Computed example of a mutant assay.
Amino acid sequence: MSPAAHAAARALLADPLTNKGTAFTEAERDMLGLHGLLPPHVGTLDSQIERRQRALAGMPDDFHRYSFLRELQDSNEILFHAMVQRDLPAMLPLVYTPTVGEGCERFSEIWRRPRGLFLSWPNRQRIAEILGDPALDRVKVIVVSDGERILGLGDQGAGGMGIPIGKLALYTACAGIHPSEVLPILLDVGTDNAARREDPLYVGWRHPRIRGAEYDAFVDDFVTAVADRFPGVLLQWEDFAGHNARKLLDRYRDRLLSFNDDIQGTAATAVGTLLSAISRAGAPLGEQRIVLFGAGAAGCGIADMLVQALQAEGLDEAQARQRIWAVDRDGLILSDMTGLSDGQRAYARDIAETDGWTRTSQGESTCSIPSPTSTRPY
């Protein structure tokens, strides 16, 4: 074999999209020059899965199983996805939530091989160049995060890349999208998590988060480059902080196909459950009074979809909004409260609507609500 042929054989095995491990047949090994690079035994996919399942079972805890599976994904995607699809109930909690949370916290500790793209603030002038890689020509789905609000763990910086990687593994396992057609992206604009910045193993940009107009311009450059490079792509916004999540979805949903499952996916699940419940109860949705407990980005997304469902039953938008009472950590959302998001403001009640209300707390006497001029929660 020529040096070029030897290099091609090694590259084939090094690429997780083309490596099949011991499953290469004798004919394939002859043609591709793989003899000697692989053990002589020709395995089947079933035997490969059994070997990895035995290794997985011997791991001391779920984090080590998560790390093992991430390494398998980075070396042999055929085997990784076959193993996940073989037993979804057992594998999904290891590939994604809840185990991915610790995977994000310890991302720098277990990072081994490139997967997806890190678009960092220092490289903001190179976004289009980075996306221009021919290896990305088949991309149809992008999941992007800036790592600021990872699950319930807060700001994980570059460690947030574990979320797009894990979510796209579900796109393949559950929706059958080819691994070459998905792209995880982390927008690394720094982190306000001092423990991450000070960790000598941290792989991200060691700088406090870029915010404000500079952040908005960075994201806009990213979206513009994505729209130019992948005009038909689905762009999923994942685990952005509440003050950015709704704003970014609203800003870009008409520029390219956008989706935020924390807002829209949660809403679809919640509203679908409510519709199912009232169909069993035999009470129309339009006759319901709905208390929304939690009015962050996800809660307001649920409320928006409920408004659409109520409008479908014949109510106008104002009537539909009147059916919803939004409660957040500061209590019922009122129009005179400060610091409301646009989403919360749409469901804020006028203080006059609470005239005559009282509140009780177990073991305490009844007391009056604050005066109409107060912005304190109650």
Rank of each mutant, 00 (worst) to 15 (best):
A4V: 07
A5E: 14
A5M: 12
A9F: 10
A9T: 03
R10A: 12
R10W: 09
A14I: 06
P16Q: 10
L17H: 11
K20A: 08
G21A: 12
G21C: 08
T22K: 03
T25L: 07
E28V: 02
D30N: 15
L32I: 04
V42I: 15
D46I: 08
R51L: 14
R52D: 10
Q53F: 10
L56Q: 09
G58F: 00
P60A: 04
D61K: 07
Y66G: 04
S67T: 14
F68T: 06
L69C: 10
L69P: 04
R70Y: 09
R70Q: 15
S75H: 11
I78A: 15
L79H: 07
L79V: 06
H81C: 02
V84R: 00
R86D: 13
D87R: 08
E105G: 03
R106D: 02
E109R: 11
E109T: 10
L117F: 13
L117P: 11
F118G: 00
N123W: 12
R124W: 10
R126F: 13
G132K: 11
A135Q: 15
R138T: 15
E148N: 04
R149Y: 01
I150T: 06
L151E: 02
G157C: 13
G157V: 05
G157E: 11
G159P: 12
G166D: 03
A169G: 06
Y171F: 14
S180G: 14
E181Q: 15
P184I: 03
L187V: 12
D188V: 03
G190P: 13
T191Q: 04
N193H: 02
A194T: 13
R196G: 01
R196C: 11
E198W: 01
E198I: 00
P200S: 03
P200H: 04
V203C: 14
P208L: 04
A213W: 09
E214G: 06
Y215E: 07
Y215T: 08
F218L: 11
F218E: 01
V219L: 12
A225Y: 07
V226D: 06
V226H: 09
V226M: 10
Q236G: 04
Q236T: 02
E238F: 03
H243I: 06
L248R: 00
L248T: 01
D250V: 00
R251F: 02
R253P: 00
L257F: 12
D261F: 09
I263W: 01
T266L: 08
A267V: 00
T273H: 10
L275P: 00
A277Q: 08
A277T: 08
R289I: 08
G294I: 00
A298K: 07
G301R: 13
D304F: 12
L306H: 05
V307F: 05
Q308W: 04
Q308E: 15
Q311I: 07
E313S: 13
G314L: 04
L315N: 05
Q319E: 15
Q322V: 00
D330G: 14
D336F: 11
Q344K: 15
A346W: 02
A346Q: 05
I351R: 15
T360F: 12
T360E: 14
T360Q: 14
S365T: 13
S365F: 14
T366R: 09
P370S: 07
T373S: 09
T375M: 08
P377Q: 03
